[in-house]
């Protein structure tokens, strides 16, 4: 899922400082799963905005709403139900959702309530960790399913640097060296000899270095 976290409240309050009517818009997709931007978090944020504005001596009406997702055109159209009730939308979706509202609602002010942080999973309740960098050229079949792009601090492609100690990364002793993990796992799978092969120089154009990425499935398009 896409993982995110709420921005500092002062930053959000500064965004909406001149607003009189605010729609805090939750997303029931990824950000609700990572407890950053679902209905519960939007309710809390709406309350905090009301309290913050009141403390700052400003009068402001804050309402809440939610969409199934904010990354699909048909769901964004659902914003029509609050038409006239807001002069700004504070979206608790990831950056994709905020962009979609901006793309599709040219007359609406939209502000991000979250910092979108990474693609990850829930390691345990309340803890999420990055697992994928969305680099567009997956090498997991070569690395036992563990991603060196996302999980190596240097995104190395041919084994560990010289900095790891006892299986831990030199940037932080609490971070596992993913190349140590890859080596150990490939050993358990009796595939360690595959690691002797050097990975070729990588083409990073798929990772966004070639500009914004787009994907077209001709079998699904309607025009």
């Amino acid at each position: 899922m896409i993982v995110a976290e709420r921005k500092p409240l002062a930053e959000i309050l500064n965004m909406v400082r001149d607003c009189k009517k605010i729609l805090v818009l939750a997303c029931r997709g990824c950000v609700s799963v990572c407890s950053a931007g679902g209905e519960r978090e939007a309710e809390i944020l709406a309350s905090l905005i009301r309290l913050g504005m009141k403390k700052n001596g400003k009068s402001c009406e804050v309402i809440e709403g939610s969409l199934v997702r904010q990354c699909d055109r048909e769901y964004i159209e659902g914003i029509d139900q609050w038409q006239g009730q807001y002069d700004a939308i504070v979206s608790t979706a990831c950056g994709v959702g905020v962009n979609f509202i901006a793309n599709l609602r040219p007359a609406d002010n939209v502000f991000p309530a979250l910092n979108t942080t990474f693609f990850g999973g829930s390691a345990e309740q309340g803890i999420w960790s990055e697992q994928c960098a969305g680099c567009g050229d997956c090498v997991l079949h070569l690395t036992g399913g563990l991603c060196p792009v996302a999980r190596c601090a240097k995104s190395l492609m041919n084994g560990p640097c010289g900095g790891s100690v006892d299986g831990r990364c030199e940037i932080d002793p609490n971070v596992d060296c993913v190349w140590q993990m890859i080596y150990d796992r490939m050993g358990r799978l009796d595939r360690q000899e595959e690691m002797a092969k050097s990975a070729p120089i990588r083409d990073w154009s798929t990772a966004g270095h070639g500009g914004p990425r787009k994907q077209i499935r001709k079998d699904l398009t309607v025009s």
Partner: peptide, 11 residues
């Protein structure tokens, strides 16, 4: 008890 309930009390 929800966080929102405590905030609502302040509101």
């Amino acid at each position: 008890l929800e966080v929102s309930t405590m905030l609502k009390a302040f509101e």
